[in-house]
Design a protein around this nucleic acid. Structure first.
Lengths: 136, 136
DNA sequence: GACAAATGATACTAAAGTGGTATCATTTGT
DNA sequence: ACAAATGATACCACTTTAGTATCATTTGTC
């Protein structure tokens, strides 16, 4: 079980790398060299970031990608939603059915509390905060 | 993404049900009636709970299962470990490789903190605490 | 205008995980 | 001896994950 999957992880690395570079347009090939992510896979990820409004793409020769917003406004929670679907940790398997006996979803209530905490923590992590050196 | 999968969920229900019953031996067929879990699947789950020391099994006619320890000592975190493997939310995909640039796993550090919180919360949930009525 | 360098779109694939089913062996109370 | 129970194991369909492959389109440069 992983909170962050490979797509999301690659997306974070790519966004950090783009954010750190003065050049405001980077081609996939530039990123591949630095990040060691298979090129076709990284392309797919960047295309998705573009579709979701986190990157701007430039087609044709000399094209590439640049950030569509400042790093502080790019949140890990958003990336997880894009690449892993919702952030829910607690979809009930028995939506209609009442859980038998007294165990009627006191479990769900407890896990909901955990979920809320995790979500709020993930919403506090931005690309900017991951870039700041010296930050713990 | 779900913190608790179906195996674990069924295990929790089964354990709660057994714990609530005065009869200290319950056969799979008794549980199936009450919990509406497919019998062969539930059997597999109970066998695993037996192997992991949470249930005691009695073979032969009149056999069944009983709790191997008091409900307060059966923790959700333990069940997750049994049915879903480790509780880690944060296995690094790049164990040896250093993450490129300055982004060297400040992400991991942040997620580790979240993980610790989730684990400690799950360790605080026991079968006993799920059975107590009125507990929110 | 031709060409090459870039992204866009889409379809495919292999491996692992999830949620089961099926079968036969063994134990044990009556 | 028999039936009712668990033990062990193998199988299966479906979904998700982590990619690969291919062709179409755009655009700067010569």
């Amino acid at each position: 079980m992983n909170l962050i999957n490979r797509d999301t992880d690659y997306a974070i690395r790519a966004l950090c790398f783009i954010a750190q570079h003065k050049k405001e347009r980077l081609a996939v090939s530039d990123l591949v060299k630095a990040l060691k992510i298979p090129q076709p896979f990284l392309r797919k990820i960047l295309q998705k970031l573009n579709k979701n409004g986190l990157l701007i793409s430039y087609k044709g020769q000399g094209g590439g990608f640049s950030l569509a917003r400042i790093p502080r406004k790019i949140l890990i929670s958003h990336l997880i939603k894009i690449f892993q679907g919702s952030l829910r940790l607690n979809e009930c398997f028995f939506k209609k059915q009442r859980c038998p006996e007294t165990n009627d979803c006191s479990l769900k209530k407890r896990v909901d509390i955990i979920e809320k905490h995790v979500i709020s923590e993930l919403e506090s992590i931005s690309i900017a905060s991951l870039m700041r050196k010296g930050r713990d």
